[in-house]
Design a protein around this nucleic acid. Structure first.
Length: 415
RNA sequence: GCGGGUGUAGCUCAGUGGUAGAGCAGCGGUUUGUGGCUCCGCUGGCCGCGGGUUCAAUUCCCGUCACUCGCCCCA
């Protein structure tokens, strides 16, 4: 028996990093007034098909989709935004021109070949700012993401940013691209040829050398921007400038999901290998309408938690897990063992410190060894002698100093 | 979905056509009530799984599963 391919057990010895990240998630989101939204991990397949787009890789080949017992087509969520929007509409989270600031964190599923930084079940943390179309909304999301990465101490990273303008402009741009690439059809990779009609934007961020060469000279969205798009984008950039958040405008950044418009961005890290995206996001002004909701311009981002942890451990910025503080040792006599149990219990309740006790009836020596290995600061020894006199020996493991104390004195030390 | 690499003790890895070793870790002793450093000893392995070749396979061949790196794409 073993875990499914591409799924991982997160073991006690590695949980500390997760707790750090989860702690930062709660802290940073709270600074910005974002509240958690917990959606189910499965939805009707239609939710993702409609939001993400039929021609995207996610929907085309990566979804965990299956019929349930009632015959409905169910999908394990491959991303969050679609479900957040579905949920926002269903519960009217943006009623009466209100905006909603939400975040989420949890497991997601994509049926792909695993590799470094890619699993079939992985975890994402993301934020969505629903109902605001201003560049200031974009900046709030970007700075939140920036602050989050900073607080985790992730250094070797870059922010790439681009604008996809309005759907109308993008439609025009697509036509331009199609005619440009069609003129060079034979130089295109097979993948790109098949995408040419359905999703020509995607050819732009292909890593295929031939495609790259063609893309470098392809028509540019920048040259076709309307004043509104141009204005929006330049405001976002100037805000980034004044906040001293470094970025690179990358005209080839298009992102793999259909629902984006205007600002799109991606955080990459050199610590990651081939899957170098820590996370990304963008503006989706028309997704609510796709679901039959009212016009609700929105923007959000998502980070891959496993990738954050990879980047953090690559630069060794994960702090050490806290160590237990007290080890209470007893041995040989029944009285000794009994005294240990009640002493440990009292210390935990009085001091709130982590107190470890041997549960294998091992020797004094063995328990001392374990205390040392665990890195505890203090050891309390209640041997048969001490148990008879209601005393104990308190030993500091770093100095080796030890003193005999009455049990009542010990309790006073920690209360 | 496609290509490369790997799969031997808890971990990191050596190794040979005649069913296996090291270091670290663990446990015990050196110290008959005291950890860390020595030194000594011990425990521990269907050599990923299935099949084939062979007198004999952990070693060679095929398949399979998993991991891993890359492609595609994304977190």
């Amino acid at each position: 028996m073993q875990s499914l391919r591409g799924t991982k057990d997160i073991l006690p010895q590695e949980i500390h990093g997760w707790h750090i990240v989860e702690d930062r998630i709660r802290y940073i989101t709270s600074l910005y007034g974002y509240r958690e939204l917990r959606n189910p991990i499965m939805e009707y397949t239609e939710v993702f098909k409609r939001a993400v787009g039929e021609d995207t890789d996610i929907v085309g080949k990566e979804m965990y989709t299956f019929p349930d017992r009632g015959g409905d087509s169910i999908t394990l969520r491959p991303e969050a935004t679609a479900a957040v929007v579905r949920s926002a509409i269903q519960h009217n989270l943006t009623a009466q021109q209100q905006i909603a600031r939400v975040y989420y964190s949890g497991p997601f599923f994509r049926y792909e070949r695993p590799q470094k930084g890619r699993q079939r079940q992985f975890h994402q943390f993301g934020c969505e700012l629903l109902g605001a179309s201003s560049p200031e909304a974009d900046i709030e999301i970007l700075t939140l993401a920036h602050d989050f990465l900073e607080s985790l101490g992730i250094k070797s990273r870059e922010l790439h940013i681009n604008t996809l303008a309005t759907p109308e402009i993008r439609q025009l741009f697509k036509q331009e691209l199609i005619s440009y690439f069609t003129a060079h059809l034979s130089d295109l990779s097979e993948d790109s040829q098949s995408r040419l009609q359905s999703n020509p934007l995607r050819i732009l961020d292909s890593k295929h050398p031939g495609d790259k060469a063609l893309s470098a000279n392809a028509p540019r969205m920048q040259d076709m921007l309307d004043t509104e798009s141009k204005d929006h984008f330049s405001k976002v950039l100037s805000h980034l400038d004044s906040l001293s958040i470094p970025y690179t405008v990358n005209p080839l950044l298009v992102r793999g999901l259909d629902y984006y418009s205007h600002t799109v961005f991606e955080f990459t890290s050199t610590a990651l290998g081939a899957q170098d995206a820590l996370g990304g996001g963008g503006r989706y002004d028309h997704l609510f309408e796709h679901f039959g909701g009212k016009h609700t311009p929105s923007i959000g981002f998502a980070f891959g938690i496993e990738r954050l942890l990879l980047a953090m451990s690559a630069q060794e910025s994960i702090s050490e897990a806290p160590k237990p503080e007290i080890y209470v040792i007893g041995f040989e006599s029944e009285e000794s063992r009994r005294a240990v149990i009640s002493c440990a219990h009292a210390l935990r309740t009085l001091s709130g410190k982590q107190v470890i006790v041997d549960v294998q009836n091992r020797s004094l020596k063995a328990q001392m060894k374990e205390a040392d290995k665990l890195g505890v600061k203090q050891v309390v020894i209640i041997g048969p002698e001490e148990a008879l006199h209601d005393t104990c020996i308190v030993k500091d493991l770093s100095t080796g100093m030890q003193h005999t104390k009455l049990m009542t004195e010990l309790h006073n030390m920690f209360s």
